[in-house]
Design a protein around this nucleic acid. Structure first.
Lengths: 165, 165
DNA sequence: ACAAATATGTTACAGTATAACATTCGTCAA
DNA sequence: TTGACGAATGTTATACTGTAACATATTTGT
């Protein structure tokens, strides 16, 4: 896949990098990560991950399903949800609770809590890693004797691009 | 309603205060708050708020609906969701995104972002106000030029009571 | 009392997720 | 090689969560 594949029916995207390349890169890293763990990134799971990355925005399970059906005769809701379960379990995908939607994790190699800024206008969600937030949440929980297993931090509002526009 | 209404079919609850009293108190404060704002805490809205407080744990919209039907001939999903919209809008109830469930706000008098510790074992959710978390989220957003409208912070894990047990 | 705005009733449906069981695929030991 | 086992997927059905759209009733201000 060339760097300027003019056929990509995708929105404009900020930055000097090519999005197609990002997807390929994310998939490659997913392969490596799964190989390292000894878990199977099957064709189906890989395809679902690819579809999530294809979208520039958080994408719902049924949107994934609709696209998947085009080349996967047998796709049904469990098909997608099982793949999502796997991808989330291994940190390749994050779920955004306030949208019931899913995004690819930009940094699956090390464990981390997602922190998302979600724009109400353009619908984009950016993942942020912020130690101050994590520390503050952890400290509060510890102070109350609460063992944290998972952590969800999501803010909705307006992103800089939409504010400027 | 007397302070020790023996008929209450509720779980044991920690602390030296009586839960029935808490409910009555929460409803009283809701009345005052709505009166102060000039908005109408109708019988239906008050009843939904009461049902939420009756539950010691986050409660789903359809669970509310089931109970509501007992004394409200005409209750249907929109009945509950409209009341919830109102209660959330005015800070009387919080929505817990990771559970699709609702809890009464213990401190509706001043605006604040909810921060919940949710126990996977007992299902209880406690609301916490933590300035450090809020500051960290706000600082990160500001640093990226993102205007925050709403904020969701939820952690799941094990509460002190369940860890001890 | 009347009009306008707010709140609720009512029906229907859209969107999200999982249960349960059947089948196929991959791996590995005998 | 084969058969047995576990993992993954297929398949059907259904449960759970939430909203659209329009009708009716209730409240409020004039």
């Amino acid at each position: 896949m060339s760097a300027d594949d003019g056929a990509a029916p995708l929105d404009e995207w900020p930055g000097d990098h090519n999005h197609e390349h990002c997807i390929a890169d994310a998939l490659d890293r997913a392969e490596e990560l799964c190989a390292g763990k000894g878990v199977r990134l099957t064709a189906l799971r890989r395809r679902v991950l690819e579809l999530i990355w294809d979208s520039h925005k958080p994408v719902g399970a049924y949107a994934i399903l609709d696209i998947l059906k085009d080349d996967q005769r047998s796709a049904a809701p469990p098909t997608v949800y099982r793949a999502l379960d796997f991808l989330i379990e291994h940190g390749l995908v994050h779920r955004i609770q306030s949208l019931n939607a899913f995004v690819g994790c930009a940094d699956p190699d090390h464990a981390h809590a997602g922190f998302f800024l979600i724009c109400n206008e353009c619908g984009d969600a950016v993942e942020i890693e912020d130690e101050n937030v994590d520390r503050a949440v952890a400290a509060t929980a510890k102070g109350r004797g609460f063992d944290i297993f998972t952590q969800t931090v999501e803010a909705t509002g307006r992103c800089p691009q939409c504010r400027t526009a």
